[in-house]
Nucleic acid binder design. Sequence first.
DNA 1: TCAAGGTTCAAACGTTCGTTTAATTTTATG
DNA 2: CATAAAATTAAACGAACGTTTGAACCTTGA
Lengths: 250, 250
Amino acid sequence: MPDNKLNSDTRERILDVAERQFMAHGYDATSMRMITGAAGVNLAAVNYHFGAKEELLREVFRRRLAWLNKERLIVLDALEQQASGEPLKPSQVLEAFFGTLLHIGEDEALGGMTFLRLLGRTLTDPSAFISAFFASEYAEVIERYKQALIRSLPDVPRAEIVWRLHFMLGAMSYAIAGTDILHVITGVEMSDYAGQEPGGKSEAMKLSQRLMPFLLGGLRAPLPNFSASSAQNGLLPAGAKREGEEVKKQ
Amino acid sequence: MPDNKLNSDTRERILDVAERQFMAHGYDATSMRMITGAAGVNLAAVNYHFGAKEELLREVFRRRLAWLNKERLIVLDALEQQASGEPLKPSQVLEAFFGTLLHIGEDEALGGMTFLRLLGRTLTDPSAFISAFFASEYAEVIERYKQALIRSLPDVPRAEIVWRLHFMLGAMSYAIAGTDILHVITGVEMSDYAGQEPGGKSEAMKLSQRLMPFLLGGLRAPLPNFSASSAQNGLLPAGAKREGEEVKKQ
DNA sequence: TCAAGGTTCAAACGTTCGTTTAATTTTATG
DNA sequence: CATAAAATTAAACGAACGTTTGAACCTTGA
């Protein structure tokens, strides 16, 4: 009756099932009875092992993000040591940040595409305790990578870099969430949602190879020109406007 | 006791309040009693006017998306007629699609930043009835703009264009959702969340001027090179890999 | 072997949820 | 003004929610 591929340990089994259910239905729409039922454990097991539902969600993320953000710091440290004081290339910074993330999608032991989708969908959740948790969990990594990006693009204003880091996180988040208006409409393959078969590997790799050039192109795009005319109609030709200073570097 | 700036008509007042509450707390975490209480109407009013909670959410989106997607088709029609058979420039297509959207953020009568944030946050909601609704509501517009993009980039494979359209939707969605890990950590100004003061105008404009160059840069980035070595360690230098063919055009 | 601590269990807790009902008030129409 | 339709109201519905309880069960070490 319980889900397949379940861990023998009750605690881990709850985490595995909760991860999948939160991904498929969202936090609020996933009840304790759905989780414990699918995990084949007693209803009270969640409260016994984790205290409350909120703490269960935090633990679902904690066990994955702990590895991810530690790995991100290790990779960045290695890159910076290897560069011996010189600024990194933007492509190196992006590869380190997003490459480590997308690596999770290729490794079921790290959460696989299930966790990636959960992460992408939860990053935009307005719930107070969720955003507070992410803020504290991501603080150090974001700060380190922000500084690395600022050093790698000395001619781009700091505020602009923060904006583009924001855009990049969004493109990545939405891409791995896989909730596609596009997928339903277009006949293109894209993701296949399942994630348990070995095909998950190539899926995450394809995503990585598609996403990285896009992010680099966006990061290195010309800066906006704020001196140009303010609003615009939307009915006008609209082309060839707001060109700006070019960003150099690789 | 009820919210300020409320419409005199009960039906519209419910829609206004629901829009704000769904944005602030999400669909599941917003109860009928929260909505009717803040709107100063009877609990049964929602069921009387809309039938059910799901239908209320659909109507909240419908009254805004009706204008948006109609406007998008009008603008695209005008551009294509003006081009008289020639393919549009990618920048024109993006300006038409995302410019009309971000215009909503500048006009409180169209929903303002409140609706933009709600839209951004709901686009990644896994709930079945929500994604089904968006799929049908967006079908025509997405198909038309996809075709326009394909025509504007004849040397880029269709699948690649769909991927990048996906990435662009993500960057936009996340940016307007404004649930920022970054905002909490960095001291940069960015959005100011409130949305009722006239400052909302410049906020949406700034966002538009920052987002558009990023999207164009990502769309026109070099194509990924699939013949290169497959996975990669994550601990290696990681730089200067996977460069590829350049995409031309403006 | 037996006490102790960790774990699982069925059952119930009080609360909140979305929805429905039936009576009442308001509005519009002849 | 009378009457039908539309709208609003207070109250209650059953269902589902997260959590708690206290007894039963299993494991472990002296």
